[in-house]
Amino acid sequence: MPSDASAGPSAARWSSLDRPPLNAAALQRALVTPDSLWTSVEVVAATGSTNSDLTARAAELPEGAVLVAEEQSAGRGRLDRSWVAPARSGLFLSVLLRPGPDVPQERWGWLTLLAGVATAGALSRAAGVDTALKWPNDLLVTVDGEERKAGGILAERTGDGVIIGIGLNVTLTEDELPVPGAGSLLLAQAKVTDREPLLKAVLRSLEQWYADWREAGGDPAASGLQETYAAGCSTLGRHVRAELPGGRELTGTAEAVDSDGRLVVRTAEGEREAVAAGDVVHLRPVR
């Protein structure tokens, strides 16, 4: 799951009361019901990467399997960046989805953006903190008037399915942040930092968005996904630099997210280019 560096100082001083463990049995009862997408919820004390673990077992698991780790030692993000944080300081989870023949595979790329929309919406409601999206997979919160990355999404194909990893900093303090520009729900003054209601809210939101998107055949417009993503995407309207594969850079104004989930950038010369992959940096406005 995504991040940019290793975590800060050890959180050994935190007691179990400060960061209580998740109740796996209660989560299973609440989320795994006859009409639910979720078929199992497993919580492990520690692992290398929930995405890697779920990928290794995907062939033997039904759609809707959920794996949650209290601590990750080798979490992965885009471009193989690491995600490491103190135990029980955040939400580190992966889910297995199989969109099936009803959704053309060329639309599966929208699952990263869908997970972002679902997570941001859930956190805004359940934690009482505004959560914005940075294209394509970052979750941003505001700390002392500054946008900071508090989490991210990583989607990976596996056989006939997709593993979606979600990583979110919940109770990290300033001295525990992986990099100075990172954030957490705690630092954003969230009203709720109890991980169990937050996890349930995220998974229920993801279930609803996935059902609507799948029912629409993966059509991002018909499902409302494209419009909702654009409304919550802080990248749009910003002056950006896109660092593209192969070392090329593109600078301009982020104008839209197209029907394929690509970021449309308008250069100073007025040309428009759709960016499918790459790092996007929010720049200060040109004056």
Rank of each mutant, 00 (worst) to 15 (best):
A46D: 07
W135A: 05
E176S: 05
L168R: 07
R284D: 14
L186R: 15
P104E: 06
L113S: 12
D80H: 10
A69G: 07
W38R: 03
S124D: 13
R248N: 05
P104N: 11
L206H: 01
T253P: 02
V162E: 11
C233A: 15
G75E: 06
L27Q: 07
A274Q: 09
D194R: 14
T193K: 08
R57L: 15
T171W: 09
R88S: 04
E42Y: 02
S259W: 11
D194H: 09
T158M: 13
V257K: 08
L96T: 04
E215W: 09
A59C: 12
T235W: 08
A277N: 05
R241L: 12
T267C: 05
R125L: 12
G224Y: 01
A277D: 07
P220M: 13
P285Q: 12
A211R: 15
D35W: 00
T158L: 13
R76F: 06
V141C: 04
S49F: 08
S94I: 00
L31R: 00
A230G: 10
R125I: 11
T55H: 11
E174M: 09
A56Q: 12
A120L: 07
T33M: 10
S52Q: 12
E70W: 08
V275A: 03
G75T: 07
Y229E: 09
R238K: 15
V68K: 04
L244R: 01
S82Y: 00
A230Y: 08
L263N: 11
D144R: 01
I163E: 08
K149I: 09
L61H: 11
V162M: 15
G75D: 05
E146Y: 02
G218R: 03
A30V: 01
F92V: 03
R13V: 13
D138I: 01
E227N: 10
L185Y: 02
E227D: 15
L225D: 05
R241H: 01
S16N: 05
R284T: 10
A221E: 15
A118C: 04
T267M: 07
S184W: 13
R13M: 09
S36A: 15
G261Y: 11
L263V: 10
M1G: 10
A188S: 03
D219P: 06
D4W: 10
L114E: 01
A150Y: 05
W213H: 09
L168M: 07
E156V: 14
K200P: 01
T158F: 04
G224S: 02
F92R: 02
R214V: 11
R19L: 13
Y229H: 14
